[in-house]
Design a protein around this nucleic acid. Sequence first.
DNA 1: TTTCTCACA
DNA 2: TGTGAGCA
Length: 112
Amino acid sequence: MTDDSRQDDSQQPQQSAGLIEDTSAPFYTIGQVAELLGMQPAALRRLDEQEIVSPERSEGGQRRYSQDEVQRLREVLELTEEGVTLPGVRKVLELRQQVDELKEEVAELKGQ
DNA sequence: TTTCTCACA
DNA sequence: TGTGAGCA
């Protein structure tokens, strides 16, 4: 080992009192997410281009990923690792949302 | 230093 | 999909 100078990342979202669960509030940089998911920053940009994830943009035009996006990214990775193409992943996510909405409708109808 | 976009293999 | 150039 040459140097063990570890840099402490103070950019990580912390749950101070454990009351605030801002899954869409804490933002990660593309580098953080890439390391977190073990993928290349370029891959994250492709996902953004394909509108599979839509990270916010900071003033400098830099992508900011929330914990929600990271979670979505995990699901996306699962699919791509199974051989699903990006357009396919997009469709899956779209269908998932529809299923979710339909479930709500069903629940409502049952309650009547 | 990190991230950005664009471009090429 | 991965990598590099040039910029902010």
